[in-house]
């Protein structure tokens, strides 16, 4: 299910004294099965953009096409339920949305609302719980007895149980410790590969964007300023810095070392492994000379 943004603009509280333009000139294509990272400062429009992905917000101009549905700016679109089933959004701190008595009931809430039988919903709950790496005995517990990291997994399982085709993640690892962060990000990478889920990741972490995404979209002040593969995006360190964005530490390292020794490290240096290999190749080559 491809998602296409055409010349999208969004104004909050349009035609009031509080009117604020949050997005403009957005042209973006998210292809089925891709993993796209959206990067930008706080207030750059990332969260506004992602709420257009399932019609929670509708454009005030332009159009958003999600699969076979097109939402046109200015026209109020109704019956968005099928769309919301196909595009699951995991918001920031999704554990705050847990409310049921048991984990099982909480995960079943979404599927049942989309018309799935209770039996089927329970089956899905079990399956999704194991997908997020939690043991089955958690099903009967109250979600509020769990640790923060476990609660977040339950909330994510609740979104997965609706079997979306597109998974939208708004800073899914905020507030988790380094181990929890890695586990959750690896889990999404696995879902992306095994279930061909399209993933849209909104993040501040350049490391995550470099490591996991096939395509990176950089937003600044409400519009897209750059698009490309991680290699393309991070090959231009200076322009990222001009936008006040960080670059992955590996890329910064490459930049610093190259300017010292006056020779390029033969690698894009997007991960520690790549950096290590790049340095090995470079030093081996120098040795031969």
């Amino acid at each position: 299910m491809d998602i296409i943004f055409k010349n999208v603009e969004h104004r909050y509280q349009a035609q009031t004294p509080f009117e604020k333009r949050a997005l403009y000139d957005i042209d973006l294509e998210i292809k089925t099965g891709s993993y796209v990272a959206v990067i930008g400062h706080t207030g750059s429009g990332k969260s506004t953009l992602l709420q257009h992905l399932n019609g929670l917000l509708q454009p005030t101009k332009g159009s958003v096409t999600i699969g076979d549905r097109t939402i046109v700016g200015g026209k109020k679109e109704k019956n968005l339920k099928p769309l919301r089933k196909k595009v699951g959004i995991v918001f920031q701190f999704p554990e705050h949305q847990l409310f049921e008595e048991t984990v099982e009931k909480d995960i079943c809430f979404g599927p049942i609302n989309f018309g799935v039988s209770e039996e089927e919903a329970k089956r899905k709950a079990k399956e999704c719980l194991s997908l997020v790496g939690l043991p089955e005995e958690v099903l009967t517990k109250s979600p509020f007895e769990l640790s923060g990291g476990q609660m977040r997994r339950v909330a994510i399982a609740g979104v997965l149980a609706m079997e979306p085709e597109v998974l939208v993640l708004d800073e899914p690892t905020a507030g988790l410790d380094p181990r929890g962060r890695k586990e959750i990000m690896d889990m999404f990478a696995r879902l992306h590969q095994q279930k061909q889920l399209t993933i849209v990741l909104v993040t501040h972490s350049m490391e995550d964007a470099a490591r996991y995404a096939d395509e990176i979209v950089i937003m600044n002040k409400g519009t897209i300023v750059k698009k490309g593969t991680p290699e393309e995006i991070f090959s231009d360190v200076t322009s990222l810095m001009e936008l006040g964005l960080d670059v992955p530490e590996t890329v910064l390292f490459k930049h610093l070392l190259e300017s010292k020794i006056g020779e390029a490290i033969p690698s894009t240096c997007l991960t520690i492994e790549e950096t290590l290999q790049g340095l090995q190749t470079l030093f081996a080559r120098v040795k031969k000379k």
């Binding site: 930008g40 400062h41 960080d246």
Partner: peptide, 10 residues
């Protein structure tokens, strides 16, 4: 954990 939700500049 007061800065965990801020962007790098923030």
């Amino acid at each position: 954990e007061a800065t965990s939700m801020l962007d790098p500049r923030g």
